[in-house]
Amino acid sequence: MLKKLNTTIKTLVVMSVLLFAKESLQAQSTLDLRINEVLVQNDSSYVDDFGAHVSWIEIFNGAYNYINIGGCYLTNDLNNPKKYWIPKGDPRTKIASRYYVVFFADNKPARGVFHLNFDLKESNIIALFDSDGKTLIDKIDLPKDHKSDVTYGYFEDGAGKMGYLKKATPIANNNPEPKVSSGDLFKQFDPSGIGLTLIAMIVVFTALAVLYFIYKAIGKQFVKTTKPKAVSTTKEQADTVQPEAISGEVNAAIAMALYMYQNELHDEINPILTITKVSRTYSPWSSKIYGLRQMPR
């Protein structure tokens, strides 16, 4: 047992040590990308890396792993899906899980990877195409009236309804309001978790205790009703072992023996060949007479 435990501990230690080595990977699925938030009329909002107020498009990675947007296409013209090719190889195009990247629609592609060759005032459509230039990943139709410094996008990151957002949130969650889940609420009142433990254990015990009491009552009733009536038995009848008379211990021993027998079975084939005739009942479905077509003469 000690040896077994040692082996297990060693295995666990090795696995844990291996788990420490963190490694990042190539992106996985671009189909999880979403055009999350867009600002067309930028007067005093987010500035680009040149200090200019220009239109911008925020892309959100909704997956739980890195996605490399490099190689995909952004466009404002569905007839020209390959309008702006996002260059590959830039580490910044690798978007972390549930994170964002912003492209500036300033029609100045010479300024860098994140500066597009179109601006958003030319069209009301923005589309993101996969690296084949054919698969549409996401598309949004912008409203015709562009409000100054007011962004348009998903109310909740990457999913749900779209509309004008209360606040521009580049590289951040579209819903900046603090969201308190019931779990978080519970934590505020019960930071150690002991309260939840007590409540939950009481509920689990109650559920199973109800079952216990009901089954105790039902069991008693059944034992009463199924109790064999005292009848005179002959010697022969008394000698016959009734199946109910076999105790649970014997059953357990039989079960254990069967289990051990089955586990010791092996799949080695007996080298002695035996030929046994297999008799099959006749059926016209399997008859050769009906199964074969007659050869033409």
């Binding site: 992106a27 996985q28 699925s29 189909l31 999880d32 490399n68």
Partner: peptide, 14 residues
Amino acid sequence: PFASGYQIGIYENG
């Protein structure tokens, strides 16, 4: 390991 975008991995839609 595989190159992304070919609908191979478990996290790739489709």
